[in-house]
Structure formats: C-alpha cells, structure tokens
Design a protein around this nucleic acid. Structure first.
Lengths: 211, 211
DNA sequence: GTCTATAAAAGGATAGAC
DNA sequence: GTCTATCCTTTTATAGAC
C-alpha cells in the first residue's frame, strides 16, 4: 500500500524536492535584489542545482518569477484570510485584527515581495492583480462583512462597510508602512505598531460611533 | 552687458541645453521601464545625443538615475509644498487639500516615480529618504501645523496633530493609491477621487469633533 | 532528469578622432 | 564637448554527455 504522498505546495503530483528547492532559492534571490539583478546563475547556486535543472522545471526567468510571487502571495496572505474576525467587544476585535495585520505586512518578506510586485506591476499585470485580490481586496471584503454586522446590530454606524474597511486598513498602514516599503525603517517595532493600531482604532471608532 | 542667464534647473551655471535634454530623456526612459531595463543607449537615443555625451555629463547610470529622481521629486512635490493651507471652513480646506493631493499623487508621472524609488530603495537609500522627506513627511508636517491651530482654536479636538495629519493622508490614499501603484487603474477618475476625498474628510471630521 | 560547457546577445563603460 | 566605434563583462538560454 502506498502511504500518503507528502503534501507539498507544488503543481499536482510532482516529486517536489528539487522543484521546491529551486522555488526557495528563487524566493531568496528575487526578494533580496528584485527581478532584474537576480540572475538565473545565482538562483541555481542558491538552490544547489544546475542552471539547466532550473530551466527544465520552470522554462524561463519570467515563469520562475511568477511562480515564486504566486506562492509567496499565498504564504503571506493566508494567515489573515484564514483567521476569523469574531468577538464581543468591537474595540478589542479591531485592535487584534490591526495588530495581526501590521505584524504581517511589516515582515521583511512581505515588504520585499511588495516592492518586487510594485516594481514589475506593468510587466506582470496579472501578478499585481493577484496580489491585490488575495491581499488588500480580500482583507477589506472580509472586514466589511464584520462591519456590516456591527451596523445591523446598531453597535456602530457604518453605512458603507466596504469603504470603511478600506479606510481602516489605510489608517493602519499610514506612515509605518510607507517607511517600511521605502526601506527607511527595516525592522518593525512592537511599541510603534501598538501605538499606531491603538490610535487608528480610536479614530475609526470615533468616526463611526452612533451617538 | 550680459543679459540675465536663463534659469534652468541644473547645477549652477551650466550651458543647459544638452544636459536638460539628457535629463528629460532619462526621465522618460527610467519612468517607462524602471532602472534595470533602462539602457544608456536608449536614453542617449531618446535625448538625441550620443552615449558618450551622457557619460561626460553624468558619469554613470547610477548618477544619472539619482539626478533624475531628485529633479522629479522636486517637480512633483513643490506644488503641494508651495500651496498654503488656509481658509475659514475646515471642511472646505481639507477637501481642497485632499483633492490637490490626490490629483498630484495619481498622476502617471508620480506613480511611475514612486514605483522606481520603491524598487530601488535598498540600492539607493538616500533617494528613498529624499522622497519621503520632500513628500509624505513634509506634507504631514505642514498639515499638522494647521491641525494644531484648529485644536488651539477649539474648532476640532486634535491632541496629536502629527499623527492625525498622517492618518489624514493615509485615508486619502487608501485603495485608490494602492491600485494606482499596482498599475490596476492607470488613469485617475475625477468622480472616484471626489468620492474618496469626501468620505475621508467626513471620517476625519467625525473622528476629531469636539462634541 | 541532471550536469558541464557553450552559444548568442545585451548593455555599461571607454578610446580616440574632431 | 561631442561623436563613432569598440571593449569586456554579465546573463539568458541551449547543446550534448551521462
């Protein structure tokens, strides 16, 4: 009897060892230097395989970049997408959500991925759209549902839940995110994050209170 | 008697025709394709000069990129920096400010410049910092002064003017800016901008009202 | 499938004439 | 200062052996 095949995040039924090694090497090299400066030679070296092996698995540099971005988008957005937005106290819920969001998007991996996608957004429009859908769009839609519920219950006054959800995440990002993607403050600082989250949530609640 | 020398935005006293032609060509090529893919050959061709002339003026591709970015940062931030924030009705003032801000940052030229800076922020940290200072930082500080004044007058309750100013611009950008830098919606749409500005200003006023 | 070796092209930078 | 022509390195991609 065959035991269950190991679950790897590859295209279906592939002996994944080499393929995922290449993908990991590509991730390191692409995210370290961006698409242009990353050479197929260094990716092959980083993955511990020959260059030809890279080509037989992915065909071209473009295709490898696309595969890498798609996988990283999954990795970096699923923690948010999978987590439920639930709780009794809206303030606590929003603060918790904001913290998780900030800790995720301020990760160096996310920052570097975002830079690469932005840089290549005109050459790879499908990648940019995939990121937007899986990230900002999905997050805002998910929050919008919760906000609509608060509005129905009368807890807060939120006539345009989708727009308010977008505003919420925008106030979270604000200056910290801008500085992060501009590489002006590499490591996320927990105190600064908490301060930003608290302030933004307070502003959000004040803007949407019923009284 | 010598007449007044023509005022060109070059380094002091240079016969500017060729130099500014190169700078304009470099702007077009760099902003069209980003730093990496832009070749010195195409820049020279775009400027209508030989490659050697480009090198005798700017020395290297890096230096040319830096010069281009600095000039474009000036061009694209001075309209905001030079305009006064003044008026009797805070709502009108903020809506006007928001509109000008959005119309500026959604310009294709700004979007492309921002992408290039973000992409190269690790290789050219001084450029990223220059952009941040002249753009987001300067804008927030300028608005913060106005907000502090409103707080002193008692018009609005704004205990942390700097943080509130950052929040203001963040809510302006929100989804429209994200989509713009991801190249998902190239041209700015006036109606969408107005809608975003109105909504964000309303939220800002509600969050900071005194009652 | 995987490796070594090579082809073929592009691009940054420079030499030398005028 | 400006142009033409050239050097030399890097890099994507492929050929061919095992």
């Amino acid at each position: 009897m065959a035991v269950a095949a190991p679950l790897q995040s590859d295209t279906p039924n592939d002996p994944p060892s080499k393929r995922s090694a290449i993908l990991e090497g590509a991730t390191r090299v692409f995210l370290a230097s961006g698409y242009g400066p990353a050479s197929m030679d260094s990716i092959a070296a980083e993955a511990g395989v020959s260059k030809q092996t890279v080509y037989s698995h992915f065909g071209s540099k473009d295709a490898l970049f696309e595969a890498m971005v798609r996988q990283k988008c999954d990795d970096l957005t699923s923690p948010m997408a999978d987590s439920e937005i639930r709780g009794d106290n809206p303030e606590e819920v929003l603060i918790g959500l904001g913290r998780r969001f900030m800790e995720l998007v301020l990760l160096p991996a996310h920052t570097r991925l975002f830079r690469a996608i932005v840089a290549e957004s005109e050459r790879f429009p499908e990648l940019a759209e995939g990121f937007y859908r899986a990230g900002p769009r999905q997050g805002a839609d998910q929050l919008a549902e919760y906000l609509a519920e608060l509005d129905r219950k009368g807890t807060l006054r939120i006539p345009q839940p989708k727009a308010s959800a977008e505003l919420f995440f925008a106030t979270m990002r604000a200056d910290l995110y801008m500085r992060s993607i501009l590489a002006l403050s590499e490591e996320p600082d927990t105190d600064e994050i908490d301060q930003q989250v608290t302030l933004a949530v307070a502003a959000f609640l004040a803007a949407h209170r019923t009284t």
